[in-house]
């Protein structure tokens, strides 16, 4: 039920992509996302799409599953496509009333939509194949050089991982308190915005008290288990680069090289 909500959207499978070091996946995804902004040619998109499909194939995540990430941005996608289609100046192909569709508009719509789609899909491959815990660990290690500037890298990573554990619990609690207040005749739906906000108090206040109580309990439990910050901590699963991580690095570079060559030498 509600406890089954997962943050991010990990897809359980055994694949080379799943096994890659999270740091490689984070950096690789960043490189891929940046590469999408480096060209304006159809051939470049073809290369980017091919590379995405190649990684998707290796990850064993079904295609239908990978495109789920597009759902939340679907409206935005339509909207930007629409804007670009009608509001780009150039050679007019079709006129509907005051609206003009231009050749350049069609191209621009295709480019921008494709770029947006690939950005999302690229990022979701990472979240689909990396557990939230690994992502957190990867981030912590990647950002660890910032520690020399006294940035609280370990603490931020710890907070992220605690949030992962407690968000589902708090969602469930919200649901329970809401029902308990409804059983006392509370109404969370009707009325104008001001009224609605006021009606939220019986939900928000107990939730706040409960979150504080949980935070207090957890802090004590962490103390009791000898937590004293990141200093001197070891890990059950430390991150270290394996053979496939090196291979993955090479493949990333190959992709960049291939992209450069296609964009440089193909006409469109």
């Amino acid at each position: 039920m509600i406890r089954d909500i997962t943050i991010g959207q990990y897809y359980t499978a055994e694949s080379v992509i799943h096994r890659l070091d999270p740091r490689i996946k984070i950096v690789g995804t960043l490189i891929y996302m940046i590469s999408l902004f480096l060209f304006h040619k159809m051939s470049g998109y073809a290369a980017a799409i091919l590379f995405f499909l190649f990684v998707l194939f290796l990850s064993r995540v079904p295609f239908s599953f990978s495109v789920r990430g597009l759902r939340p941005i679907f409206l935005m996608l339509i909207f930007t496509a629409f804007l670009n289609l009608f509001w780009t100046e150039g050679e007019v192909l079709l006129r509907i009333g005051a609206l003009e569709i231009t050749k350049e508009g069609i191209w621009k719509m295709a480019y921008i939509s494709l770029r947006l789609i690939l950005l999302i899909l690229g990022a979701s491959i990472m979240t689909l194949t990396t557990t939230p815990n690994d992502l957190t660990a990867g981030m912590e290690r990647l950002l660890s050089p910032l520690k020399i500037f006294h940035a609280p890298v370990h603490e931020i990573a710890m907070m992220m991982s605690i949030a992962l554990r407690f968000i589902p619990i708090l969602i469930e609690e919200t649901n329970r308190i809401m029902k308990a207040q409804m059983a006392r005749g509370a109404d969370f739906e009707s009325g104008n915005i001001l009224r609605k906000l006021k009606n939220m108090l019986p939900l928000v206040l107990p939730l706040f008290v409960s979150a504080l109580r949980r935070a207090n309990d957890l802090a004590q439990a962490m103390d009791a288990r000898c937590y004293h910050g990141g200093k001197g901590r070891t890990r059950m699963y430390p991150l270290y680069f394996k053979g496939i991580d090196i291979v993955a690095c090479f493949i990333c570079m190959l992709y960049l090289a291939a992209l450069y060559l296609t964009v440089r030498f193909l006409p469109i």
Partner: peptide, 29 residues
């Protein structure tokens, strides 16, 4: 072991939670 079972586990994976104490103590991997 505390009263509320929900409020004392740190990690969202069982084995990583069990590892929390030894990790804090700097026990080798």
């Amino acid at each position: 072991v505390f009263q509320n079972p929900d409020n004392q586990l740190v990690s969202n994976v069982v084995e990583e939670d069990v590892a929390f104490g030894p990790e804090n103590l700097g026990v080798p991997t």
